[in-house]
Design a protein around this nucleic acid. Sequence first.
DNA 1: GAGAGTCTGTTGGATATACAACACTTTTGA
DNA 2: TCAAAAGTGTTGTATATCCAACAGACTCTC
Lengths: 184, 184
Amino acid sequence: MERTKADPRVLRTRKLIMDSFIELSSKKEFKDITVKDITEEAMINRATFYYHFEDIYDLLEKVLTEVLSINLDYERYINSQLDEETISNIFIAITDFQKSLSHRCHRGYEDTIARIIREQLEMIFYKLLLKERPNDHEDGLKMAAVMLSWGIYGASVEWRRSSENQSPEDFMKQGIPYILSGLK
Amino acid sequence: MERTKADPRVLRTRKLIMDSFIELSSKKEFKDITVKDITEEAMINRATFYYHFEDIYDLLEKVLTEVLSINLDYERYINSQLDEETISNIFIAITDFQKSLSHRCHRGYEDTIARIIREQLEMIFYKLLLKERPNDHEDGLKMAAVMLSWGIYGASVEWRRSSENQSPEDFMKQGIPYILSGLK
DNA sequence: GAGAGTCTGTTGGATATACAACACTTTTGA
DNA sequence: TCAAAAGTGTTGTATATCCAACAGACTCTC
């Protein structure tokens, strides 16, 4: 399992499975969705599911990663600085993602979701930092990316907890100066 | 080629190919559609196309048969008599089918289309007759089905030639008594 | 707590699909 | 008119998918 990405059969099958899972998620809670449900909806054999995913939790993780990655749309920032606007956009993408999940029911998987968000953030920040400071030491940049990802994630938790009425942009503005000054 | 209908891979692939062909037909004339176009749209390998269809004309024929068969919806008549209403419904399905084709461009394939229509009609009429007169001789019923199919097809040609303003129902009413009296 | 039913994860063998390469024909356009 | 490009149809090999069957885990019900 987990081989080449190129074979069209593989792409097709994975898309069928993921789309079916997303479709089912809009009708049932995660805990009530079985592998059989998914493969029947996707019209693929159950054995084929296990060729691509370890189990249903692996699928959940990959679907969430995929959806979040589309939300974040890294390509957008390829030519941007790690400035106030970029951070604000990333923050908005995160809060949007969390809002979209709150409609579905993933109770009990908050920690998985949190980890996925942080992993994606870390990767994006690392790429941006590397582009911006190619001469810095890798380990330092990695550590900065880790801290940024935790910081932004924490901010999103705080935003949901206390101030959903405030726009994410305004909320984030309060914290950004501290983040940016730490990076100077 | 042309094996079992049961394998889900086969059903999936054929549907992908047929849907792609229908989609392309709404954008281009038939003569401008290549096998490569179809397989790229369907995201299947070109060699796989030839596993299922002899060539693009074979595909055209099978797609038309499929579409017409859905239009005719034989199941509807399973419990009906071969009466005025049934014949009228069948006639309407045929004229609808021909109208839907007139938007697409199949110039040069009118004879193919005519044959497909007659084959489908013949099959339906044979089934209906067999159910209605199980004691008659098979060959006689087959001949009756052949004549009915040619008759109905001819009527649809005449309808298109002379009186598209008249509703197919009204048009058909004129001929039905002759058909039914022949069957008594 | 025993039995029936459903779900999971795995396996071996059968088959459909992908791919690359080929010779051939048709179209294109300079 | 010629050469390059594009399309057709075929083949051999690799691999993804299907299928049937299995053992084990889990619910549910009596």
